[in-house]
Write a protein that binds this DNA or RNA. Structure first.
Lengths: 179, 179
DNA sequence: GTCTATAAAGAGATAGAC
DNA sequence: GTCTATCTCTTTATAGAC
């Protein structure tokens, strides 16, 4: 619901109706509407961070790490699109403290990705004429906006899409003889 | 304001206060809050479509068209970040008819970009193992999410960033001897 | 754990004077 | 073109019975 109508645009009435209960019943399970948003956001970050960490560590050869990371990110992100979109754009509705917590989680994830990118640069497999920070931002751009338009019922699977995006990014950033 | 708090999260009271007038005064200028959102969205699309069209046509050599397109897109998008972010994510608050109009505008823009990409593929300058549609989506991913985190007061200019993103995309999609 | 009922505040929008 | 005042509806959240 938050994804469809936005956090502020969703009322507790609609939320309750969607769950088939009365408004008051909601408040037995959650403390406030904002609590719900906060939990969604933290779950999103936890899911994606842990999945990507696991996939990276499980990658056999070091040179497969980046690809494994992209695959894991896309698989998780496209499995729970609603949750991740909500985290990405509705965090502004949170209280300052919680807003900061979510931002900290995102920063941590970004550092995780940047770490892998830095290692690949150091290993000579990734171009170094663009900083690790900028490569990280480019990669996250490529992955994050996908969540907004991807239709699971479409004719393209998440895995296929991950391959395409990997290919665009990796070919564009590989260290090789270039001008 | 819509960017900061979202459309539904922004009240006409706050809007009026920001402009230094009373609530009622707003309604002398706009018909409804939704009208305002609709105008913002259509302005965003018009600006970006016309700037990119002009830049593409002005590009001297055909092989510079794609680069010119990316530059123009980023320049306009980062100049009026608030407006474009609002168009990108708040369109869901519009009535069905207006929602459809905004989506049609976005589709039209996507076709414009895809047209340039197709010509580059046909000219043998862009890889063809990924469809024009998927290359277009990849490019728009790369560009669109940037609007969300770019800070104009940061140490990186819009032009520098456009160069970096161009470089990542163009190097990743160029037609050349690859495996 | 779910309900009915309601409190208290805030929303979008309008009337009508100046 | 801007104001004060207000209407009407919806909002989040709570009280208290079952």
């Amino acid at each position: 619901l938050f994804r469809q109508k936005g956090y502020a645009g969703s009322s507790t009435r609609e939320l309750a109706q969607l769950l088939g209960v009365q408004k008051a019943t909601l408040y037995h399970h959650i403390r406030s509407k904002e609590d719900l948003l906060f939990e969604i956001s933290m779950n999103s970050l936890r899911d994606i961070t842990s999945a990507v960490t696991a996939a990276t560590e499980a990658a056999g050869r070091p040179e497969d790490r980046l690809q494994a990371m992209i695959d894991a990110h896309m698989r998780v992100a496209l499995r729970d699109q609603d949750m991740h979109i909500t985290m990405l754009i509705e965090l502004r509705a949170l209280s300052p403290e919680r807003h900061a917590q979510v931002l900290a989680g995102r920063d941590e994830y970004e550092r995780l990705v940047r770490g892998v990118i830095k290692r690949e640069q150091a290993a000579g497999r990734l171009r170094t004429d663009i900083s690790a920070a900028n490569l990280t931002l480019s990669l996250l751009n490529l992955l994050n906006w996908t969540i907004f338009w991807f239709k699971p019922e479409g004719n393209q699977s998440a895995a296929e899409l991950a391959d395409i995006l990997s290919s665009v990014f990796l070919d564009g950033t590989r260290q090789q003889g270039k001008t």
